[in-house]
């Protein structure tokens, strides 16, 4: 029988190694594949630089264009809120900073726990609202594939279990923490092979777009 401490040590040890190995392997295969494929030569005379417009577009597309906002204000507001919340909780919670420091050697200042706590609560609500909207909105519902629901769950669970562990809502604590780490590992493993790769590719795609604009001499 596995005790809660065995479980925690398993998720903190071997399983974590496996998860980051799959994550790094998967994400590098995908990115290197995309980059090394190259693009076919463009024989047209470039009308402007690419780098600055590329970066500009990466930044600019954080702001939704007015048309999209008018058509789907819910998606824009809720989507932005929970995305930011997720990133803040992921990167600025002190225990997470410690994990990153121990794994890749980079560290940065974190936020006070109550701030992260509030952000997490908002993120949870945002994710729940997004799911309800997806289930009730006829068009969204029609467009959703099973993968979309899986990805929602894979994203939601680490936030939920993290909230539960922080507030010590489940006893014993090693179990709560172990479950949180496990869900985070599932997120890492699933990421490279689903549309969660947008975490990396969205920026790349935007840059290509902007760079193209620059080359063509249109406003980026």
């Amino acid at each position: 029988m596995m005790s809660s401490m065995d479980f925690l040590l398993f998720t903190k040890g071997p399983l974590f190694q496996v998860a980051i190995a799959i994550f790094v392997l998967g994400i590098l295969i995908r990115l290197v594949e995309i980059f090394a494929l190259g693009r076919s030569r463009n024989f047209a005379e470039p009308r402007g630089g690419q780098v600055i417009p590329g970066l500009k577009t990466v930044y600019k597309r954080f702001n939704p264009d007015p048309g999209t906002f008018r058509r789907a204000p819910f998606d824009v507001v809720v989507g932005t809120v929970w995305h930011i919340g997720f990133i803040v909780a992921l990167l600025l919670f002190i225990p997470h900073v410690e994990v990153i420091k121990a794994t890749v050697g980079l560290a940065w200042p974190g936020l006070p726990n109550p701030v992260v706590d509030a952000v997490t609560a908002i993120t949870l609500l945002g994710l729940i609202a997004a799911l309800i909207h997806r289930l009730t909105h006829p068009v969204k519902r029609f467009l959703s594939t099973p993968e979309d629901y899986v990805i929602w769950a894979v994203t939601f669970l680490p936030v939920l279990t993290g909230y539960i562990a922080y507030h010590r809502l489940v006893n014993p604590y090693p179990l709560a923490l172990g479950v949180h780490i496990l869900t985070a590992e599932i997120f890492l493993i699933v990421l490279p092979f689903t549309k969660l790769t947008h975490i990396f590719t969205a920026v790349v795609a935007r840059w290509f777009n902007g760079a193209n604009f620059g080359r063509k001499g249109v406003q980026s």
Partner: peptide
């Protein structure tokens, strides 16, 4: 090590996987 820090040599796993 902080309690959240994974046990084992993540750095080398990371390099190998990379």
């Amino acid at each position: 090590n902080a309690m959240s820090v994974p046990v084992g040599d993540s750095g080398n796993v990371l390099l190998a996987a990379g």
